[in-house]
Design a protein around this nucleic acid. Sequence first.
DNA 1: ACAATAACGGATAAAAATATCTTTTATAAT
DNA 2: ATTATAAAAGATATTTTTATCCGTTATTGT
Lengths: 142, 142
Amino acid sequence: MILSKSCEYGIRAAVYIAYKSSKGLKAGITEISDEIGSPVHFTGKILQQLSRKKVISAIKGPNGGYFIENSANVYLVDIVRAIDGNELFSACVMGLKNCSDLRPCPMHEQIKPVRTQLLIEFSKKSVQELVQDYEQNKYFLK
Amino acid sequence: MILSKSCEYGIRAAVYIAYKSSKGLKAGITEISDEIGSPVHFTGKILQQLSRKKVISAIKGPNGGYFIENSANVYLVDIVRAIDGNELFSACVMGLKNCSDLRPCPMHEQIKPVRTQLLIEFSKKSVQELVQDYEQNKYFLK
DNA sequence: ACAATAACGGATAAAAATATCTTTTATAAT
DNA sequence: ATTATAAAAGATATTTTTATCCGTTATTGT
Ligand code: FES
Ligand code: FES
């Protein structure tokens, strides 16, 4: 698997939250996990992480919930890094401790461009752009 | 992580086994895990899987061990599929059950070319070619 | 002030992946 | 035949990931 389950949920949640935010609404944990088809409490934990890292915003209490202020400036790579860290874009595909051009594994040269492309794709589109497509029913979140 | 630990060990082991085979020698579990820096018994389990799936060959008893008959016809994708299955090349990056152009997630179009490239890179070079580079000390296995 | 709401935080549980250990089976050499 | 060797197979243990539960804290509306 390319991304951890936590990260999958995190991205899907973020898109949904930004979707709600684009309508001026906040989204609660229950609603979110319902819409993206994820376990409620586990999703809560993930949203906590994203909130702590300022990828999304949270407000407690009545009328509270999650929202994304600046979805135009939030890219999927930010979510991936907040949850899974940067290993996906840097770690050796064959598990060697120090992946580098100086100490490459047999797949190093082959995998380098893939990782770069992966980073580019996760960095390319902002959450806002994804939401626009989502609003046009181009995408599914569950 | 792109590959599971099992798969990482599996690939590294296969390269080393093929390296030994190119010298007409067989490799034992202890030697292999020593050379690639992996836990002995766990490596044994992985080699069992590869053996059952005919990616590598095994012979029991004295002077037995693992070897690879046709390393020119074994590609890394075969090892990956034998251990991790095909999900890496087919599963939705955001965890949706049915990844397809008809029911895409927000990252579907972006990720498709990456997965294709990943498949190509894992399919491109045979284990034999990798061994040739390994013999020239171009690569490390631990 | 009080009650209701909703995220936060810590503790716990279940499942999956990783790792180890032991016994069995096949093979080879003597 | 007997013994030694090495992988296969099965059982068990540990660790990590995923998931759940519960009390706390912040905020809102009455
Ligand atoms: S050393 Fe393996 S990918 Fe760089
Ligand atoms: S639906 Fe997510 S990658 Fe295809």
